[in-house]
Simulated assay, not measured.
Amino acid sequence: MILSRMAKPATTLRYGRHRPEQNLLYQLVETHYSELCSQLDTQGRRLPTCARQEFEDFLRCGRLEHSFLRVH
């Protein structure tokens, strides 16, 4: 069988926006994260810095209000 070495035409990729606000886990974290932090503060405790950063990054990920970049 002989395979053609000709380049295939480029396909057009379509962007499908990630919508985290429609995800149940995202909704739970968004709703209860500040309450968790408040409860820990009243107890004189805090989440570890790395855990706080992960929650905050998670809540910003995929949200257009936190910037958007599309590169071709």
Rank of each mutant, 00 (worst) to 15 (best):
E35A: 10
Q43R: 13
L59T: 00
V29Y: 01
S67C: 13
E65T: 09
R70T: 13
F68G: 07
L24N: 10
V71G: 02
Q53H: 07
E21H: 13
H66Q: 14
R60Q: 10
A51T: 14
L25E: 08
R5N: 12
L25C: 10
L36S: 02
A10G: 03
E35N: 08
L47M: 01
F55G: 00
C61K: 11
A51K: 07
Q53A: 14
H18M: 12
S67H: 12
S4K: 01
P48A: 04
E21N: 03
T12S: 06
F58R: 01
G44V: 01
S4C: 04
E65Q: 11
H32K: 12
R14P: 02
A51C: 08
M1N: 06
E21D: 06
R63Y: 05
V29I: 11
F68H: 12
A10C: 02
R70E: 13
H32I: 00
H72G: 15
Q22G: 13
Y15L: 15
L64D: 10
P9V: 02
R5S: 05
L13M: 07
T12Q: 09
Q27G: 04
T12R: 11
C50H: 14
T11S: 11
R60G: 03
R17G: 06
E30D: 11
F55R: 02
R46T: 13
S67T: 15
T42N: 13
Q27Y: 03
L40S: 00
E21I: 03
T49S: 11
Q22W: 06
E30L: 05
S34W: 04
